[in-house]
Amino acid sequence: MRATVRDVARHAQVSPKTVSNVVNGTFPVSPETRQRVEDALRELDYVPNLSARGLRNGRTGVIAVALPDLSTPYSASITRAFVQAGARRGLTVQIEESAGSVEREAQLLSRARSHLIDGLVLNPVLLETSAVQPGVSLPPVVMIGEVEQPAVDHLWTDNVRALRELTGLLVDEGHRRIALLGGMPSASYQLRRQGYREALTAAGLPLDPALEIDVHGWTSAGGAEAVRSHLAHHPLPDALVCCTDTLAMGVLSALWADGYRVPDDLSVVGYDDIPEAAYTVPPLTTVHFDRQVVAEMALDLLARRINDPSHPSSSTVLPHRIVRRASTRPR
């Protein structure tokens, strides 16, 4: 006989409403309670009746997560976190690529307004090119990343502080000619460049425009191409601060191919702490933040917005830390 919500509630020693909150993702539940309910769901082989649920509450049980570029290792790790967090809530997570396009973002917002999906988690590239703007009729939306729009809930890491700390680490280890690699039109780059510049200024080091290196994209190929182009016309810096680990992977490959040794000839650092960062040669010093926490908090905020569209919007800064590995050394 098929298990019911009441069966699960008795087994987990919680109320049926708490079971519904866990299954539907409608309200935040403490980790301990969620674990008890999930254990009961698994042990009783509970299967939610999604058709009945949709007819009852007008929801699809589907949310969308839209990222600018799905080809990067960072995108793979963050989408995995969202799929896992969604599964724990009984949600289907639809993964989309916005490509930084206002038209694509607008299409996704329209889907949510038409109730084809229940809500949207969006990672825009620039506020100016985002479809999420003041005065626009918005469905339930949570924004992640560096673009902040006060009209919606927002989760991000403090990029300025993180780059200030990362660059400061290099300064403290005796590096003086420190380059920043990753220049492109994005809010992430603008904030990371600000932190980099603040660290150099605080150390009394000059800001040299030649050490701010543009790229054609935040890909490994883009990183390799940019560092080779730079070194064809400029001397080797003491250190390279790469705006993402994906860029840093390309930089490490290009430097190795051209006969440079990291960290003996120069130090290299990244940002994101993707799983591959621990296995580059040498392992990469980088900025870490917990992507599973991002996904869990984003879906909690989205559930709150779905249930209470008038709730005041919030902006939450997530913690980060520097992970020291073997790609840096004192000068």
Rank of each mutant, 00 (worst) to 15 (best):
E105S: 11
A106F: 10
Q107S: 15
Q107V: 08
R111T: 02
R111G: 08
A112N: 04
A112V: 06
A112Q: 07
R113K: 12
S114H: 13
H115N: 14
I117C: 02
G119N: 05
L120K: 04
L122M: 03
P124M: 09
P124K: 11
V125A: 11
L126P: 13
E128V: 13
S130A: 01
A131H: 06
A131I: 01
P134I: 03
G135A: 03
G135H: 05
G135Q: 08
V136I: 11
P139N: 02
P139I: 01
V141A: 07
V141I: 11
V142D: 07
M143I: 15
G145E: 14
G145P: 12
E148W: 15
Q149S: 15
Q149I: 12
P150N: 10
P150S: 09
A151I: 13
T157G: 06
N159T: 08
N159P: 01
V160A: 07
V160Y: 02
L163W: 00
E165Q: 13
E165V: 06
E165N: 05
L166H: 03
L169M: 14
V171Q: 08
D172T: 12
D172Y: 06
D172S: 15
H175F: 08
R177D: 07
I178G: 02
I178E: 00
I178S: 01
A179E: 01
A179G: 03
L180Y: 02
G182M: 00
G182R: 00
G183I: 05
G183E: 13
P185M: 01
A187Y: 04
S188Q: 09
Q190L: 11
L191G: 09
R192Q: 07
R193G: 01
G195H: 00
Y196P: 04
E198L: 11
A199E: 00
L200Q: 10
L200P: 08
A202Q: 14
G204T: 06
G204H: 09
L205N: 02
P206Y: 02
P209C: 00
A210M: 03
L211E: 07
D214I: 01
H216T: 14
H216N: 14
G217E: 14
G217V: 03
W218V: 04
W218S: 13
T219Q: 07
G222K: 10
G222W: 10
A224I: 14
A224Y: 07
A226W: 07
V227S: 05
V227W: 06
A232Q: 15
H234D: 09
P237S: 01
P237V: 00
